[in-house]
């Protein structure tokens, strides 16, 4: 079956002032695909994933979501409705969780559905509780973020993104701020999502996890895709010397 890609980038460019961070990215992501972005810091992988829900607006190139053009050329500020629509369908989880500290766990999860989708309270809460069960935090629904561990916070953040019933999930270094012993519980939640067929893009430093979960691994360097392929191709048999030395640092 040759479905049109969910996300399609053509020559995407992102400048921060004088600095060009993305130098023409071509990337198609199919439904159900799990794509891992790896690369040294400053390679543009975070910027790239942040462009996928217009957290950063691209400076050039074309960005299509479900065959709708979200941003094209340099007039890519986008209108708020179009971006809002995109963000409703593309969930994002951040490195630093960014939970709302003034709201408890259940309210954190219900806020999007309540405010953006105008769901009734009862419906939003019912689904939120179901999601909390899925991420293994059913008993925490009345806790405030400050009462949770990092791993728990991140699982709540994932549930918050899932509450919008997104078609794509973006994970931007979601385990980088966690204590090592808490990483596993978050990765397990992401693994479950992958098993359910969620389309996902992850920026990660967990190479073993990327190898295990991703359908495709993309090595970004200096704002361009320098290698791309199956985990086997990229992580086990890297072609370029740069990638080899990058990976060597992880394998020790």
């Amino acid at each position: 079956m040759t479905d049109a890609p969910v996300i399609s980038l053509k020559g995407m460019i992102k400048n921060f002032g004088e600095l060009q961070v993305l130098k023409g990215i071509d990337l198609d992501i199919q439904r159900g695909e799990v794509v891992a972005l790896i690369g040294p810091s400053g390679s543009g992988k975070s910027t790239l994933i942040r462009c996928l829900n217009m957290m950063e607006s691209p400076s050039g190139g074309q960005f299509e979501f479900m065959q709708n053009i979200i941003a094209k050329g340099f007039k890519s500020k986008g209108n708020e409705t179009g971006i809002g629509e995109l963000r409703r369908r593309v969930g994002m989880v951040f490195q630093h969780f960014n939970l709302f500290p003034h709201r408890n766990v259940l309210q954190n999860i219900c806020m999007g559905p309540r405010i953006v989708l105008k769901q009734p309270q009862a419906e939003a809460e019912k689904y939120a509780k179901h999601l909390l069960e899925q991420v293994g935090l059913a008993e925490k629904h009345e806790a405030y973020p400050s009462q949770l561990s990092g791993g728990q916070k991140q699982r709540v953040a994932i549930a918050r993104a899932l509450a919008m019933k997104p078609e794509v999930m973006l994970f931007d270094e979601v385990t980088s701020a966690l204590d090592p012993e808490l990483v596993g519980e978050v990765l397990q939640v992401i693994r479950n999502l992958a098993d359910e067929g969620m389309t996902m893009v992850l920026v990660t430093h967990e190479m073993a996890f990327a190898a295990d979960i991703a359908d495709r691994v993309i090595f970004l360097e200096g704002g361009v895709i320098s290698e791309s392929g199956t985990p086997e191709d990229v992580l086990v048999n890297p072609k370029s010397e740069r990638l080899q030395s990058f990976l060597a640092r992880y394998h020790g």
Binding site: N53, M55, E80, G84, E85, R87, R88, G91, M92, F94, H96, N98, L99, F100, P101, H102, M111, G112, I115, V116, A157, R160, A161, A163, M164
Partner: peptide, 26 residues
Amino acid sequence: DKGQTEAGAAVGMSSRQIMWNVIMPQ
């Protein structure tokens, strides 16, 4: 924190909704 605005935006809130539901209460 800017992350709060981003978290609101990530679920599709408009800038106005972010201001009154996320930023102002804090």
